[in-house]
């Protein structure tokens, strides 16, 4: 036996990466994940078509009123603005809702199906499994954001002209630099979601029902979004995780306004730390009976 043990017990530092890879491929092969991504990819197409039809009817574009989502009036001049518009449209609800589904289901879904007990006796290790689940959710945040951005870019390029980008501060930058800024914005949007991802992960450790965890996370998101709009609550609003979400627009200024961006990222890190610790405390001591 000792020889067999010698073979078996070789330290394998990269094993966690193997587990992470398994988790990511499993997540992204699920129909549910693909459906969420398809919905997210569909939003920019709808927005793009709507803008096209409206400006087609109403004669020369650009007039199109001050209502509607940010940047929408610029889309007809420059398809690249469809990226910014689409992110502004999906960030309040569509994007975080899909994160809520993935994060809420991450552990609760495994508990519900009973596969959690087999992962734990494998033994995946509770802390490691939690980290792998969080890393997978963060990967989904990035992929989901990029799906919106790329779908918007493709739609914008098809329906509208591309060219120099006029920033909010009035200065113009080349299309290439505009693309870089779009990429930076996508990354910032993805980072804006890590607080919610931690909240969802924590909720997921509380229950053995994937549906309940998803519903709770999404419900929390909606509640917090509503609280964020009530003027009487302005004292607590700076501590609500979506409060600075739309600050990504500050990347379209020259020079960039960093203040709100930094506050956003700091707040997300705080949520990740607090709810990540709570999830760890809960998951490492929980009885797994399902």
């Amino acid at each position: 036996m000792s020889q067999a043990e010698g073979v078996l017990r070789r330290p394998r530092p990269l094993w966690s990466l193997g587990l992470l890879r398994s988790e990511i491929t499993t997540t992204f092969r699920r129909w549910r994940t693909l459906a969420l991504l398809a919905v997210l990819a569909g939003v920019p197409v709808l927005v793009g078509i709507a803008v096209k039809i409206e400006t087609g009817d109403g004669g020369p574009g650009g007039g199109g009123g001050q209502g509607g989502p940010a940047f929408i009036s610029q889309v007809t001049h420059n398809g690249l603005f469809l990226v910014f518009t689409s992110l502004a449209v999906t960030l309040p609800f569509f994007l975080p809702m899909s994160i809520g589904v993935i994060a809420g289901d991450s552990l609760a879904g495994e508990a519900h199906g009973g596969t959690l007990r087999y992962l734990l006796v494998a033994p995946a290790g509770r802390t490691r499994l939690l980290l792998v689940k969080y890393a997978t959710t963060l990967t989904f945040c990035l992929v989901a954001t990029l799906v919106v951005a790329l779908s918007a870019l493709a739609t914008g390029a098809l329906l509208f002209p591309l060219g120099e980008v006029t920033l909010l501060s009035g200065t113009s930058i080349s299309f290439g630099e505009g693309l870089l800024r779009a990429l930076a914005i996508a990354v910032v949007v993805a980072l804006s979601l890590i607080g919610l991802a931690a909240v969802g992960l924590f909720v997921s450790t509380l229950t053995s029902s994937g549906i309940a965890a998803m519903a709770t996370t999404v419900g929390l998101l909606i509640t917090v979004q509503i609280l964020d709009t009530i003027p009487q609550l302005s004292a607590v609003q700076p501590y609500l995780f979506p409060h600075y979400w739309l600050s990504f627009a500050d990347l379209l200024r020259d020079p960039v306004y960093w203040d709100q961006l930094q506050k956003n990222l700091g707040l997300q890190a705080l949520y990740a730390a607090v709810f990540g610790s709570a999830a760890w405390a809960r998951f490492t001591t929980r009885d797994i009976t399902a």
Partner: peptide, 29 residues
């Protein structure tokens, strides 16, 4: 230790082989 606890639990959306690959990936050894 190999264990079967309270019946099997599987990922319905994965094939039998992929299920085993997944559980094996969770084993550090």
């Amino acid at each position: 230790v190999g264990a079967l606890i309270e019946g099997p639990a599987l990922y319905g959306y994965l094939s039998g082989r992929e299920n085993l690959r997944r559980f094996d990936a969770a084993d550090p050894d």
